[in-house]
Design a protein around this nucleic acid. Structure first.
Length: 719
DNA sequence: CCCTGCTAGTTTTTT
DNA sequence: ACTAGCAGGG
């Protein structure tokens, strides 16, 4: 192996022999290179590839790592265990389903399935009126699982809490857990939690894996949650060859349970840890690194690192203020067109934003200008209704107890099985202590069903039985094709498409799903074994987005900053740098939350290789209402000189409070009053609504434009 | 049981 | 501003 491509610190990490190793790899310092070289080196030294476990967070990262190992150690990469945490856990649970007390053919429920089930659980507990809070409870339950609190432990914890909502959460958690288990399902948190209990309660299994994995490597260690920490620690306990790579400055997933302490305290947790710090950046120009560095320096709790580069020169980071999000978008598009003229391919541009909603104005501007773009994330392929419908059929075939999926498609296409019939089915099931799926086949015994409904249920049952019987002889694609055909889902969409454009696009998506199954199948066949429907589902239920295979077309990229982590682009636009948007929710956010926003900003900036633009607007429409914004404190922290907008002289910390105190203006403002807005000019108040913080006024301005303004956020002046 | 008009939530980030 | 989910009538 050629080590000459590594700098001395990288080489130190690659060549580190036995014992724990912490690699603090700042942005763009060759983190993936270190981890893949290290694996290749281990293989070269005689470690069997099959006894190396490398864990990543995203499927994309896992795929990339596998490819890079393959190129360094040809023919041996496939034996290395390269997985996401969740993928690894799913594999273990299938392997040890009995010991883990899960159904052999368990279904992995994503967060939308989870939310549905939680709403059901809430109804059952009598919290119907709080249905809107399902996502809140979903997140409470998920965080509890990340912290390894099962329903029982959470109830104990809740009983000592003074917060009454904890007790409600505990009740919902317990009912939810019963439901998901009866449906033979696991959610993302369960994957981790159940593996932890498996390893804890079965010493023989634990010792087997502790023995088995000679080396454990974890990428993006700063994003691990407590459960992942325990899994890692347990697996590496015997050989103590644990190598973690990460950057505390890029920890941006605390809302998902990530605990930054895992990386900050690694040296304390694992005795005699080797520490390597990578600070030489190979990605960005000096001005970009310096600006990013000045910003991240405002964070208190971090392992101090300073990015540096040997590269000389580089264009200054540019800040641009725009009137509103429309102007922001057209300015960015204009810059892209200029860049294209001077020879940059479209693939070298990326637009980043804090929230998905911001993508819309960019999409509109790009479409208007005829610039091709790729939107990453937003409406994920596998989360689309029609895709979930199609997959629900497949899930039921494999896991007949899967109630969620059954209820999802039982009347799609319409089969005359409505709410009332389903209620009766559920009641019938409940009386027998079963879930709806389990008593579904006994439909003929259920009272009060209409004959047509009874007939539909019987037909559906027959359809499932027939396909289940044939399933062992079918490949994933054959199975999917038959499912979509025989369930009449496809022909139904075809019919609908004639009158409904949305159905047409859903049909196109389902057809795309079919071709993507085919693709998977062919890729797998190349490796020698056929792909079963079960294996296909396993792969994609942990996949949030289908990797875009058609990268051939030259296009620019749009995505949230979170999704941008780990990527790089020559020219980056970091947009919407406004107080309240980025950092988001300013005012009432804690110091920790603000520091996470700052890390996110740092992540976004350090994606740029050649040129970085920061934009902010003075007014932005949110929820259909115009808010007036001040530039993000991050703009000031970057201390950029030159082309900075005039706002630079403002005292940001002092003005991060609302521009106009609502109380004063809210009470003084009369209908008919003449007001002045810095952007829209002079106008007249037509209506007032709301009170206190939500007080709004409808103002017609002299340019003819009428806008409802939230007084708290609008710098209106009475004249 | 299906359709239509209303209401309420949505926009923080995702394995 | 937009939409998904729901209540109430056909």
């Amino acid at each position: 192996m050629d080590l000459s491509l590594l700098n001395s610190e990288q080489a130190k990490a690659v060549l580190h022999k036995e014992g724990p190793l912490l690699v603090l790899a700042a942005a763009g310092t060759g983190k993936t290179r270190v981890i893949t070289y290290r694996i290749a080196r281990l293989i070269e030294e005689g470690v069997p590839p099959g006894k190396i476990l490398a864990v990543t967070f995203t499927n994309k990262a896992a795929e990339e790592m596998r490819q890079r190992i393959e190129s360094l150690a040809p023919g041996r990469a496939s034996a290395v265990w390269v997985h996401t945490f969740h993928g690894f856990c799913a594999k273990l649970l299938r392997q040890h389903y009995e010991a883990a007390k899960v159904s052999r053919y368990f279904t992995i429920y994503d967060q939308s399935d989870q939310k549905r089930l939680i709403s059901d659980a809430m109804k059952e507990c009598g919290f119907e009126r709080e249905a809107a809070k399902a996502s809140m409870y979903a997140s409470i339950i998920s965080r509890a699982k990340d912290d390894l609190l099962d329903a029982g432990s959470y109830a104990i914890y809740a009983s000592t809490s003074i917060d009454p909502s904890r007790k409600i959460a505990a009740q919902i958690y317990s009912v939810y857990q019963k439901k998901i288990e009866s449906a033979g399902g696991v959610d993302f948190g369960d994957l981790l939690l159940k593996v932890c209990s498996l390893l804890k309660e079965h010493p023989s299994i634990r010792e087997y894996y502790q023995d088995y994995f000679l080396h454990v490597l974890v990428d993006e260690y700063q994003d691990t949650n407590h459960a992942q920490y325990i899994i890692t620690k347990t697996l590496a306990a015997k050989h103590k060859n644990l190598c973690v790579v990460g950057d505390d400055d890029q920890s941006v997933y605390s809302w998902r349970g990530a605990d930054i302490r895992n990386i900050l305290e690694f040296e304390r947790d694992f005795k005699e840890t080797g520490v390597v710090t990578l600070e030489q950046n190979y990605r960005s120009t000096k001005p970009i690194l310096e600006a990013a560095g000045r910003i991240i320096n405002n964070n208190g709790r971090r392992k101090s690192k300073t990015l540096w580069t040997q590269r000389q020169g580089g264009a200054a980071v540019r800040v641009q203020e725009l009137i509103d999000e429309r102007e922001e978008a057209s300015w960015v598009v204009q810059k892209i067109e200029e860049g294209k003229k001077s020879g940059h391919p479209l693939s070298s541009f990326a637009i980043f934003y804090r929230t998905n909603a911001q993508s819309r104005s960019f999409e509109e501007a790009l479409r208007r200008a005829g610039v091709p773009y790729r939107l990453i994330g937003a409406m994920r392929f596998y989360q689309r209704q029609e895709i979930k419908d199609a997959l629900a059929y497949a899930r039921i075939l494999l896991n007949p107890r899967d109630e969620i999926s059954l209820l999802r498609v039982v009347n799609v296409p319409p089969r005359g099985i409505g709410k009332t019939s389903l209620e009766r089915l559920k009641a019938f099931a409940n009386a027998r202590g079963l879930n709806a799926s389990e008593s579904f086949r006994d439909a003929d015994k259920i009272d009060n069903l209409t004959p047509s409904c009874r007939k539909s249920l019987a037909e559906l049952n027959h359809f499932f039985d027939k396909l289940r019987a044939d399933l062992p002889n079918l490949s994933a694609w054959q199975a999917m094709a038959r499912i979509l055909d025989e369930s009449r889902y496809l022909s139904w969409l075809e019919e609908e498409s004639e009158t409904d454009i949305e159905a047409a696009s859903r049909l196109a998506n389902v057809q795309e799903l079919l071709s993507s199954v085919k693709e998977y199948e062919e890729r797998r066949q190349a490796r020698g074994s056929p792909l079963s429907l079960g294996e296909y589902l396993e792969e994609i239920s942990l996949q949030t987005d289908r990797e875009t295979t058609d990268t051939a077309a030259d296009s620019i990229t749009l995505m949230t900053i979170h999704l941008a982590k780990g990527l790089e682009y020559p020219i980056v636009f970091l947009t919407g740098l406004e107080e309240g948007l980025f950092p988001i929710g300013s005012g009432n956010s804690s110091k920790e939350e603000l520091e996470e926003e700052r890390r996110l900003c740092y992540v976004g900036m350090t994606r740029a290789k050649e040129m970085l633009y920061l934009t902010h607007t003075s007014a932005r429409r949110v929820f259909g209402q115009t808010y007036s914004n001040i530039p993000s404190r991050f703009v000031m922290e970057a201390q950029l000189s030159g082309e900075l907008s005039t706002e630079r002289t403002r005292d940001y910390t002092a003005t991060s409070a609302p521009v106009v105190p609502a109380q004063r203006l809210g009470t003084n403002l009369r209908i008919g009053a003449r007001v002045r807005h810095p952007l829209f000019g002079v106008g007249e108040v037509l209506e007032k609504s709301g009170s206190g913080e939500t007080a709004k006024a409808l103002v017609r301005f002299e340019n003819g434009r009428s806008t409802k303004l939230v007084l708290r956020y609008t710098p209106l002046e009475i004249i």
